[in-house]
Amino acid sequence: MTKIVVLVKQVPDTNAKIVVSGDRVDLSAVKKVMSPYDEFAVETALRHRDASGGEVIALTLGGAGADKVLKDAKAIGVDHIVRIDCEEELDSNSLQSALASTLQEMGAEIVYCGKSAADTGAGSTGPGVAERLGWASASNVTSVGFDGGLTVVAPSDGGNARMSVNTPAVITCDKGDIKVRKPNVKGIMQAKKAQVEVKTAAIQPSSVTIVAHSMPPAKPAGKSYEGGAAAAEVANLLRDEANVI
């Protein structure tokens, strides 16, 4: 039975206003959701199970507050939900080490995750975990096929390519042409009752530490014009002042 694991992360709602108070972002008033690209990863993992059997386990790392995204994954059909208990802020090295050792212990055979998380936007977790496991990886994947081995469509050399991927592998998912299924009443009821399996993992010390958050630098006020005829002047300024054309 193929063990399919999908990594999910809880992030601030992408429509939320981000406030910096002191020198840290203040997320206390912000609604938390599953990172949007992780939703495509969950959907793809479920399709993998539907196509070739097996079970799907959603895995996250965080405090008890992160259980909500696991329940959201459960509501649309994952089989098991697991959280590595850790409240600390981790750098990529510590995070990936904890995930990789847990995946190994779980006997994961294929891992899906979003192409990047909506908070950091880094996109490091998928390829980093793959490297630590000695697995193949394919990133920014928009479509996955399961017949006759794993195939993916991903950007390549300015276009797209269909590639076969050795397994085991980590696949990071972009928004493709798939629709993420919605939870039904039965799913929501099951999610409510579902138990989160809480694991501990050895956490290495971080070598990258957050010094400060700040608001993006304000742009100096630009020049404003009324009426379409001003487009001629703006075109000249783009050449002579901004030097961009």
């Binding site: 750098d91 990529s92 090295n93 510590s94 990936q96 080490s97 192409k115 950091t120 936007g121 880094a122 996109g123 490091s124 977790t125 998928g126 390829p127 980093g128 975990v129 793959a130 490297e131 630590r132 990886s137 990133s139 920014n140 950007p155 971080s206 070598s207 990258v208």
Partner: peptide
């Protein structure tokens, strides 16, 4: 996107952290 992916794999290969963007 491709080089960020490479950066993450290189870092993991050497047990280093990666700082993106």
């Amino acid at each position: 996107p491709q080089s960020k992916d490479l950066a993450a794999r290189l870092a993991a290969r050497r047990n280093l952290s990666v700082v993106q963007d």
